[in-house]
Amino acid sequence: MIRVEHLSKEYKIARRKPGLRGAAQNLFHRTYDTKAAVSDVSFSIDQGEMVGYIGANGAGKSTTIKMLCGILTPTAGEVRVAGIVPYKQRQRNARNIGAVFGQRTQLFWDIPARESFNLLKHIYQIPQHRFDENLRTFSDVLELEPLFGRPVRQMSLGEKMRCELAAAFLQDPLVVYLDEPTIGLDVSVKARIRKFIREMNRNRKTTVILTTHDMQDIEEICSRLIMIDAGRLLYDGDLRSVRQRFGNRRTIHFDLATTATDTAMPAQLAPWVFAEWEGREKVHIQFDARQTSASDVIAAMMQSYAVRDLTITDPSIESIVKDIYERGLS
């Protein structure tokens, strides 16, 4: 469905000289730096796959997605989406794809959602019966009914996102690009959206490419991960091996009530944990849940320090990417 071969994109950035004199020089003589946003990335994705495309901010995720959508022309390499080169036949490619771009709305700001969908029907030339059928199916999962009469600008983030998803799948696209579809949403809306994406994929074999910072999104939606870092492909494979490696990793952040005099870990914890101090009043402790438990770590810490507050977190995408980058996935 999607084939990407040796894809690269370089941006030219004007180098600005400092000061007024520099600004004047820039007017007449500009020097450029080239920044490689994506370098020599290759992968191929079959129909019906659900792929998490992840990386830290600025890793080149959205540049890649833009090239897949036909919004950007690559510097080198080749892209084919359903047999079409997107940047050469942008409008034809647009018929095959749907997209949700985080905070930017695909809907029309001022008009009620129902009318927005209706306009999309005309833009994509969706047959009436198909349009009605899709809206009915989508409404069941996304609970769109109460939103139909309202314009996007009067919607909450969650309501808006439900409509965005419906809009992205409305024209029966072959491929859907979802850029941070759950960012800032509450748990129940997130669950609803994930369910919707899974159902679309199961019933229609829609290929889904998802970029997110939410590990839960990936666990529940994707079966495959493609990771990029600094524009280069870092990992391409199934989710299972990543989960085996990182799925049990926890971090507990401790805020201490007093300044610690000794930064060594309690003896019973030392073999199992990795501690990172932030000054002498904060410490982040990483461990593997199979080797020791959160309750043991907390108990031991409480014994040794005056703990004021603590939070437990799953590993972030950034930390996983960083880890794979530094140590590989073996």
């Binding site: 833009k66 959508c69 036909g70 919004i71 942008r90 409008q91 034809r92 647009a94 018929r95 794809i97 997209a99 771009f101 930017r104 709305t105 695909q106 029309f108 833009i123 994509y124």
Partner: peptide, 22 residues
């Protein structure tokens, strides 16, 4: 400036038409 132009580029219609009709 807002990046909304990208929205016009992923529609199967002429982006100038879309811009004007908006």
């Amino acid at each position: 400036r807002t990046g909304n132009f990208d929205r016009l580029l992923i529609r199967p219609i002429n982006p100038l038409f879309h811009l004007i009709a908006d």
